[in-house]
Design a protein around this nucleic acid. Structure first.
Lengths: 391, 391
DNA sequence: CCTGTTATTTCCGCGATAGAAAAAAGCTAT
DNA sequence: ATAGCTTTTTTCTATCGCGGAAATAACAGG
């Protein structure tokens, strides 16, 4: 009876407080985890955990998994997210194609799909995306789709508007709104590298580490950073600043005249061009990797300098971004199998022997990694906008 | 009367909540600032500001400066810190000397002083520090000294214990405890670069920027980072990882074999050695700078490559630490006057033309900057442990 | 069965915050 | 001069989230 104006039973409950959101994140990210553990991580009292987790349990978003017996004391009754409570779609839009995944609540891919783009027209692209989402929905049935994430190379404003996407030749396209109309799902739009970094932060092998970097190789070189459990986003995110680092003063020059630029030494087109020149005939990226694995001398010369360049880049990242963990991903990450050893050696040389060794995680899911990143932003957005009756 | 056990009138009030601390920091850092402004910055309602600032005003830690009239509406009555409410001492301890400052509450130096160290014995160093503090106290009288900060090159644990200080040959020295016994003042110990970075964060020209880097030149090259308004501290802080970056593949090699290493290209000893070799006779750092300013060709050759190396380092920092603001400091920062132009040009070449231009701030306070950094940690510590009766 | 240990819950109080409304302190236009 | 406008600041009060203490639960081992 206290002065609340419109308290119909179906009134929208307020959005989750930051603590509830953090709780949701922790349970999602750290799997079955006891309330006691959560309390320690969140720096909350046990009492608070009981209170905070109750609405999630009532809504069926958390489940209590089987009791785990320690050596002594009352067994713990860990909380876990019901990963099949919802599905999400993630789409990476490049200049040529849309690649998508459906995932569960933990961004685990359930099905994936790629579709060529007929052109760069906004309407056409939106139509393709909607088709892909519909097909993915059918390909891996389950809980209803709860959201959609799309990622593009370029600048994105507030998770909704593509302000600049050079490969699509887009400027100020309200993509989230368009996708919501086309699919009826809540949509989130994000820069591709930021999305991938977000996915690594919540669901990747470095999710326990509060600061780490992400490096992607493929069509370009991408670079993302997480510091103190926050993805670092700046005005320059989307410009690909990690893509033009000087890594070898004697290396070939990129289109902008940078010697030994990462855009030449490490990208698929850059390697293909170098090897094509060295061999005198055209090759594909896969052939480059195959020839390098077969120790073809001219090719190995190219990939060895690529490995050194990568090692140097990783060393610079560790020393300047102050991280000791780096995740490697991207559609061209197959390169790592060929150059990993050289890169590691170079990294060792760049790094002070007394310093914490750099932990490397290689995410070899290739193209799916990008789409999964997009799905992760949708999951985040869903968690952040979640409303619970009793909370 | 509710169940509080020992509530004598003089009982210690609880420590400040995080919001009060943030308020204290904002007022300290952003000078005269209206409650309305503070409310916007802290994302608090005006009501909260009234409540939060009251205890500070009652304690005399804040003053209301003269009303400022806007174009319309009630004039603002900005809050400001009473900078002379307390003084702090800051000491930088190197292998050779102790240099100290007394500062006001805003880390503005009131007096400074340098004293040679007789050796590296812990007791002797503590005695020298205590002497320096006493002399500084007398040199610039005022409010009582409220705390003391000491900084050293090396690793420091929890602001109290020097775990490793190569230049002093120390291991596990409980310096804060020792200094507190010797001086009777609350003491804080911190790594030198971290302390300097902290000072820049709270009191430096980049204090409005939430993410920036600090580069120091002098005996070595130091590197500190602030991201999202937090000084980044890692396990490797104190190792000087910014000091061995490859900046010029053709440059001379450092003791560890790194070509064009920042420890050679940019430090005072490195430059002195290069110029000495080039000229065939010994020179001092000041002479190097003077000769370079006089455009002596052999010297200019050295400083020009130093400038290029510095520009490259700044570019790498901006691109990899994702900052667009860098503060240059350190006792050898006089170098900037000589190489600034070259460095800026190189930085421009390293940076994507579409990216936010890098803002550079040069703190030319030289050696005092280090001691001031130490004082800043003492101020921080005082703010963080402050207790107010009515809060 | 009793004791020790750890996890979780219940109950209650406290502190921090926001919201609304009022008061304050100017300015401008009539 | 006074009414009306704007913005800041204060006062008052309701609410929300959190923690502390004690109770309860669920085991292991003597």
């Amino acid at each position: 009876m206290p002065g609340s104006s419109t308290d119909s039973p179906a009134a929208t409950s307020p959005p989750l407080g930051t603590t509830s959101r953090e709780l949701a994140r922790l349970v999602l990210v750290h799997g079955p985890i006891s309330r006691a553990d959560l309390g320690r991580r969140l720096d909350l009292s046990p009492a608070s955990l009981t209170r905070l987790s109750k609405p999630f349990l009532e809504r069926g978003l958390f489940v209590e998994s089987a009791a785990e017996h320690g050596l002594t004391g009352r067994p713990t009754r860990p909380l876990d997210a019901r990963v099949d409570a919802a599905r999400f779609a993630g789409l990476k839009i490049t200049g040529d194609a849309v690649s998508g995944v459906v995932t569960d609540l933990r961004a685990t891919p359930l099905a994936s799909l790629e579709r060529e783009l007929p052109g760069h027209g906004v309407d056409a692209v939106v139509r393709v995306v909607a088709d892909v989402v519909a097909e993915l929905d059918a390909a891996a049935p389950g809980a209803p789709l709860a959201g959609l994430g799309a990622s593009v190379g370029g600048n994105v404003d507030a998770g909704r508007v593509v302000t600049r996407a050079p490969f699509l030749e887009w400027r100020h396209v309200p993509l989230a709104d368009l996708l919501e109309s086309a699919t009826g799902l809540p949509a989130t739009v994000e820069n591709d590298v930021t999305a991938l970094t977000t996915a690594e932060h919540w669901f990747g092998p470095a999710r326990d580490v509060s600061s780490f970097a992400v490096v992607t190789v493929g069509a370009g070189v991408g670079y993302g950073l997480v510091v103190n459990d926050r993805v670092v986003v700046t005005a320059d995110t989307g410009l690909g600043l990690g893509g033009h680092l000087p890594l070898d003063d004697e290396g070939p020059r990129c289109s902008e005249g940078h010697p030994g630029c990462s855009s030449l030494m490490l990208t698929a087109p850059g390697l293909v061009a170098q090897v094509t020149r060295a061999l005198g005939h055209a090759v594909t990226y896969d052939e480059v990797l195959r020839l390098a694995a077969a120790r073809q001398p001219e090719v190995v010369a190219v990939t060895d300098s690529a490995g050194q360049a990568l090692g140097r880049m990783l060393g610079l990242i560790a020393n300047l971004a102050l991280v000791d963990t780096i995740v490697l991903s991207g559609e061209g990450v197959g390169l790592w199998e060929v150059v990993g050893e050289v890169a590691r050696a170079q990294l060792g040389a760049e790094r002070d022997p007394e310093a914490t060794p750099v932990t490397l995680h290689v995410d070899d899911s290739g193209f799916v990694a990008w789409a999964r990143g997009a799905a992760a932003t949708a999951i985040q957005s869903a968690v952040y906008t979640l409303r619970l009756p009793g909370a």
